[in-house]
Nucleic acid binder design. Structure first.
Length: 276
DNA sequence: CAATATACCTGGATGC
DNA sequence: TGCATCCAGGTATATT
């Protein structure tokens, strides 16, 4: 599932490849993803344009074009972006293909169609990006992500700490998998009320968020070459989980049996002994 | 404001 | 083997 590390790895891989290349042709499945996207709008603002830069905000990728238009892509649950030879066969669920000027194609594949593909025209891009940044939460690697700010943010919220970590309007980029892993590393039980965490516990959350997300990005980085070459199957996920998906197995820290419980309807894995 | 439910989707796993 | 059912979860929206 693409969370911050997977989106960051994708961004880095594409930023290394796309700038300077033009879009000579485009294919659009016409299928509705999270929003509908008229082909004419894509063609009007993206065709014949040159990529200048790829950025990430929260789990969104922002492809900036020379005409100042922005192509916005969110990977949703199953979205994958890859660069393939233009003459290689497209796959089921390829929704967008942008043929580049060097006989390669940038392809967006998304089986479950929870993803987003949007175009911001040049005259609207500034405002749209401002709106996006305002409604998304703080970046885990941004200057606001401090134990002090988080303590203040949480001190009046009677919500499970895991739900708060995953609330994209408060904190961007942390989904179910990394929320589980961060809370395990920080030794905090996922159902604890966010308001109950003391400053030392928030310091552990910040420390381990940085450590785990950084490690995951680095692990994904090793597969960038694979994801850029013809075979096309990204597989950024090289990360070694401590608890996610491991209910019934012994805790790697204390050997107690890991448990699985729903927290706000999301599978949550934790050690009942060393997470308190 | 917070908690809960539902919707969007399809592939893979499971059960009969 | 086939068919039904459930589950995975990022995000938005409606309801309690």
């Amino acid at each position: 599932m693409p969370e911050l590390p997977e989106v960051e790895v994708t961004k880095n891989g594409l930023q290394a490849e796309l700038p300077g290349h033009a879009v000579l042709d485009l294919y659009w499945s016409g299928k509705k993803l999270r929003h509908s996207m008229p082909l004419a709008r894509l063609r009007q603002h993206i065709l014949k344009q040159i990529f200048t830069r790829v950025d990430r905000r929260a789990k969104y990728l922002l492809f900036r074009m020379e005409n100042k238009a922005t192509l916005l892509i969110h990977l949703g649950m199953t979205g994958k972006l890859g660069i393939h030879p233009a003459d290689s066969p497209r796959h089921q669920h390829d929704h967008l293909a942008l043929r580049l000027d060097d006989n390669r194609e940038l392809r967006f594949n998304d089986a479950r169609r929870f993803g987003v593909v949007q175009v911001w025209p040049p005259e609207e891009a500034g405002q749209m990006e401002k709106d996006l940044c305002e409604r998304e939460g703080m970046e885990p690697f941004g200057p606001d992500f401090t134990s002090k700010n988080l303590f203040n943010l949480a001190c009046n919220r009677r919500v499970a700490i895991k739900s708060l970590l995953m609330d994209s309007h408060l904190i961007a980029g942390i989904g179910n998998i990394y929320a589980n892993e961060i809370l395990f590393a920080a030794k905090i039980q996922p159902e604890r009320l966010a308001s109950s965490l003391n400053p030392a516990e928030w310091r552990r959350i910040v420390l381990h968020s940085h450590r785990i997300l950084r490690r995951a990005i680095e692990a994904g980085g090793s597969t960038i070459a694979d994801f850029l070459n013809a075979s096309g199957h990204p597989g950024y996920f090289q990360f070694q989980f401590q608890v996610y998906g491991k209910a019934g197995l012994p805790c790697p820290r204390c050997s107690a049996i890991l448990q699985k419980i729903p927290v706000n309807a999301r599978s949550s894995f934790f050690c009942p002994v060393c997470q308190i």
